[in-house]
């Protein structure tokens, strides 16, 4: 009998869902966890849209794009949320996206004019360490000193790729030399952010590649002020996380409504303490308290999407050769 009751309940549930339109959003894993922005965003948008918002978590940003390309026009996704700047050129080239049509003033350190992809948050890459630990002021000091560091692999993780572009944007042709100097500081290269950050917290390295806002997590969520991000005087590379509307969407109005909603306070106010990044549009209440203590780099580096895409292959070869010695 219990099975019967369960089955009936299930049928009613699916029928109820079938009557309301469904907006399907592909996003990366950590966006839609209990601590991520997902639940807040879903609740807030469903209050106004008369729809059912479904997040589908599909690995990290790079895996999202691969999945979309595998699915092609058959994709169920109406919106993809969580591609980063290093993937935009490839995403645009796939021809799967439609213009977002949203124009709002954004609080980004750089001008943003991409017609296909709309930023929802951003951050600066930075090396994060302990307050009493070593504090090199740039890549050259880091390479010359003996601070140990864990980084991510640019072939399997977006922060790793961000670091590759950071060195390239700051040093251009001198990048191989910088990497060679860093080689003896690098404890190891991990497949993704989680392993690297976990190893840093275990005390395996003095520094880890993360974001300027990582210490905000420890400060706000854990009341722990022992972590700091290092300000580098050559500037910090930006990661801008974007959303895009699929050309093949069967809910174009809902998708447009979501992109509009994404730039409002209901979405943006959740970002600093759930995704631990800067909101694309600063909400009316400003940033949470802990963010005052974060470093704010004076120079922001960001290669144009097509230039970054063209540079990736050669930069990877340089990186591999410098670190394989």
């Amino acid at each position: 009998m219990r099975h019967l009751a369960l089955a009936t309940g299930f049928m009613f549930a699916t029928q109820a869902v079938a009557q309301t339109p469904v907006l399907t959003i592909y996003t990366y894993d950590s966006f839609n966890t209990e601590w991520g922005p997902g639940p807040v965003v879903e609740k807030a948008f469903e209050e106004t849209c008369g729809c059912d918002l479904q997040f589908v978590a599909a690995g990290d940003g790079a895996a999202l794009l691969s999945r979309l390309r595998l699915e092609g026009a058959r994709s169920e996704a109406d919106i993809v949320l969580g591609l980063d700047t290093s993937l935009i050129a490839k995403a645009a080239e796939s021809g799967l996206f439609a213009p977002h049509g949203v124009s709002v003033d954004m609080d980004l350190p750089v001008a943003w004019e991409d017609p296909l992809f709309l930023p929802f948050d951003w951050g600066w890459f930075a090396f994060v360490g302990n307050v009493d630990g070593p504090m090199p002021a740039n890549f050259e000091e880091l390479g010359a000193g003996n601070a140990s560091v864990v980084i991510q692999d640019p072939r399997s993780s977006t922060p790793g790729l961000g670091l590759l572009m950071w060195v390239k944007a700051a040093y251009g042709d001198r990048a191989p030399e910088i990497w060679q100097a860093l080689a003896d500081n690098i404890v190891t290269v991990t497949p993704g952010w989680s392993e690297a950050y976990g190893m840093f917290l275990e005390g395996e390295a003095d520094l880890v590649l993360s974001y300027t806002t990582s210490p905000a997590y420890h400060l706000i969520a854990e009341g722990d002020s022992s972590k700091q991000a290092l300000a580098f005087d050559e500037g910090h590379y930006l990661q801008v996380e974007v959303a895009g509307k699929l050309a093949s969407t069967d809910q174009p109005e809902l998708a447009d409504a979501f992109l509009q909603f994404m730039m409002t306070d209901a979405f943006q106010a959740a970002i600093p303490t759930t995704n631990w990044m800067y909101p694309a549009v600063t909400p009316a209440g400003g940033l949470p308290d802990g963010y005052d203590y974060m470093i704010r780099p004076k120079t922001s580096l960001l290669l144009p999407a097509d230039e970054a895409e063209a540079m990736r292959g050669p930069a990877l070869d340089e990186w591999r050769q410098a670190l394989s010695r």
Binding site: D153, R155, S156, A183, I186, V187, T188, V189, T190, P191, E195, M199, W319, R320, L323, S324
Partner: peptide, 15 residues
Amino acid sequence: LTLGGGPKATSVELA
């Protein structure tokens, strides 16, 4: 990758 300490320790699966 994690214990290999760098791109020298690249496996086929990573590629």
